[in-house]
Design a binder for these strands. Structure first.
Lengths: 247, 247
DNA sequence: GTCCAAAAGTCTGGAACCAGACCAATGAGG
DNA sequence: CCTCATTGGTCTGGTTCCAGACTTTTGGAC
């Protein structure tokens, strides 16, 4: 095997020579909007930004955006009204989750993709918590953290997921690294569909609440190691649950 | 402003409604290939994969890939030869670094960008090492790790950076999470320009070698905590050096 | 010297996507 | 009731990008 020098070999080339484009602009857009709806970024009854504005934000043409909106309209997620004060309104309530949905959702995703997403999330969220705990926090930062923590604890069941997301993302954003925050958001997105299929039960909430409190406490106490461990423990729980549903 | 309900507010919508396409396929491809060359994924004298294969990996058409290759050829990075045993060969050597270059490079980058990149790198590389140390390693994985470690230690000065990158990326890729590997590669890319501007001196190499050895040992011993700490210590060194050059 | 496989180079038709101009509907406010 | 700003709906021409078939060059193997 003379051949050309292979450099780092497979190592590195896998990461660097990965696909440049995620794929089809239309499908990608549908997926994004669907995530925004299911995550509650745009709540029930809420309105998407005007087409021209949204198209600019997403970096696509209005035509492509409209196709995506049309698809979601046909699928019953959106109600589009024209005229002033019109727009694309969210007409979708997340169904109350059942364990059967979860099993289906987990198996829809490939096993390797699930493992990838869980590993990635574990790494970046632990990293964010550790960084944040190691930083000198301002009063405003401390307040934001406790406020979002309170938000989860006081959330109505229908709002629980949204508040939970807000707490996790707050840690990421407070870390002060936009790159790290984006990575955490991305990681969360990849498991959102699955987490949404987990019923929100009182014991789970209480369990999670204790872990959330531990995370916040460790961060506020400035103990990076404890913060990292607390996040790891928290995420390990849901990760194990999801893994358990693999065929 | 009555308006529509805003959901998670800025949090989340920033991440969700970000651009779907990174931009122009051609430019994106040029950038990628350039990174691969500068990172040493394809070393001096080495050959890029055949066009058809590479196009498939990058998820673009051969036409677009060829345009990118042509641009790099014109810019003097590649030498393209046809016929069997032909291909696109790397004709580029990173210039020998001087401290003046480093100062300039650091200040070219914004302070916040530098801080962001360093934080991000710290988080994801620590995460990767921790994950890898916590996994049950196959013999092949162990061998890959020790082989890349030996690679750094035996590297000629001109080749040191490449081998160093190979070692760091090997840890990321062995973690088994493509997402995490991509994040580590991305993080490394953001500081490559700076690291390349640091002269490779014997004391630095010996210091780094000891830290590399500690990292590998912790991973092979299956001690996630030690692995994480070893990586943190290793990265903290260069991070402090770079921070010292801020205006 | 001839053959052949592997690689770059070329061409074509079509699909996806875009930018921008223009049309149509809607409902609050005068 | 009328006006008008705002929003979705439509159309047109052009650019980018793609999939695949085909051609040419090259150098090792026989």
């Amino acid at each position: 095997m003379g051949g050309a020098p292979t450099g780092l070999g497979v190592t590195g080339s896998l990461a660097l020579l990965r696909p440049v484009r995620s794929g089809n602009a239309f499908e990608e857009t549908v997926e994004r909007l669907l995530q925004a709806i299911k995550l509650g970024v745009v709540p029930y009854g809420g309105k998407l930004p005007p087409e021209r504005e949204l198209a600019a934000q997403l970096g696509i043409s209005r035509v492509t955006l409209r196709e995506a909106i049309r698809a979601l309209q046909d699928a019953g997620y959106l109600d589009v009204r024209r005229g002033r004060y019109g727009g694309a309104f969210v007409v979708y309530r997340p169904p109350h989750p059942r364990m059967g949905d979860l099993r289906r959702a987990v198996n829809e995703m490939g096993q390797s993709d699930l493992e990838d997403a869980l590993t990635f999330r574990m790494a970046v969220e632990c990293g964010a918590a550790q960084v944040l705990a190691g930083a000198r926090l301002t009063d405003a930062q401390r307040e934001t953290l406790t406020a979002t923590l309170d938000g989860v604890n006081e959330a109505a069941p229908d709002d629980y997921r949204r508040k939970d997301i807000a707490f996790h993302l707050a840690i990421a954003e407070l870390s002060g690294s936009p790159l790290l925050a984006a990575a955490c958001a991305d990681a969360r997105l990849r498991v959102t569909g699955l987490l949404n299929a987990i019923p929100v039960l009182r014991p789970n909430i209480e369990h999670a609440a204790a872990q959330h409190a531990a995370i916040a406490a460790a961060i506020l106490a400035g103990d990076p190691e404890a913060a990292r461990r607390a996040v790891a423990e928290h995420l390990e729980g849901t990760a194990a649950l999801l893994r358990g549903f693999l065929a």
